[in-house]
Amino acid sequence: MSSVDAATRVLRGRARATREIVTPEGVTLSVELAQHGERATAFMIDLFFWFCGSLLLFLTFMVLVVRGWVSIFAVSILLFISFIIRNFYFIHFELAWRGMTPGKRIVGIRVIDRHGGPLLPSAIVARNFTREIEMFIPLGILLSASGAGPIPWERLMLAIWLLSFVALIFVNRDRMRAGDLIAGTIVIALPRQRLLDDLVERQASFVFTDRQLRAYGAFELQVLEDLLRRPDGPGVPLILGEVCGKICRKIDWREPVAEADRLRFLRDFYTAQRAFLEREQLFGRKRADKHDTAGDGRQ
């Protein structure tokens, strides 16, 4: 996968951090870690849903059951209802939607087991319950400014407590919060990949020699693939012309390529190059890029 990774790094600018999991079948799959911003966004969306739900239930409760008394009990009951709802919310959705809450689904991220095992219900319970400890309960105590609350040094400690948990996500490599640490999970991004048409040309009008095809490696091939897959745009013919010229110089292609034939030439070159490199790879001579000497066959 190294050539794919290398090509991705060039084509997408800054690549995401990836981790590898091994499925029970023994196949290694690489997953992309979710970014801090994505996780924060998903969390905000979930908080919004939770807030609306709690408020609705609270208002119904206040109107139907206990019309009249407000003050400290109202606050307590609101906190209580919100506690129940948010735990049901997170745990229910992560179980039913296999590691996604509505917020995570909108953003396109999900929770998985760190080593690729099945995501167990106990892990989901653990990671969400730890969220209570690391965030909601300290926050609730800090915000509930009732007179009978804890004494000030406890509040200070709670503030430090909250901050250190937020800091934890930024200091560990896998961007785990305390809940992920305890439950053995990570949060990944899973953008959808579509299968596009094969670029291989069946009828070749340009024929290349092995010597010419040896000029490039898998990395260049995949960058060329990306260029050929690009939808038509204003700049594309210009780039095609430039790339075409460069390749011709590199492989000593003497005959000039007409402007109308450029795309055809490049596709033929792609096909021939891929056929050549894949054949070489089958014989154990992998060639990662043009600087790689392993596939030269001349050493």
Binding site: T23, H92, R98, R192, Q193
Partner: peptide, 28 residues
């Protein structure tokens, strides 16, 4: 294969299928 799109697609497909096949089975 050296088809980048194909490799990325298959990896993505396997991963998505993996989460469906090995997802949590129980309701809340």
């Amino acid at each position: 294969a050296l088809d980048r799109n194909l490799l990325l697609y298959l990896e993505n497909l396997s991963l998505r299928a993996f989460f469906v096949v090995y997802g949590p089975r129980s309701s809340m």
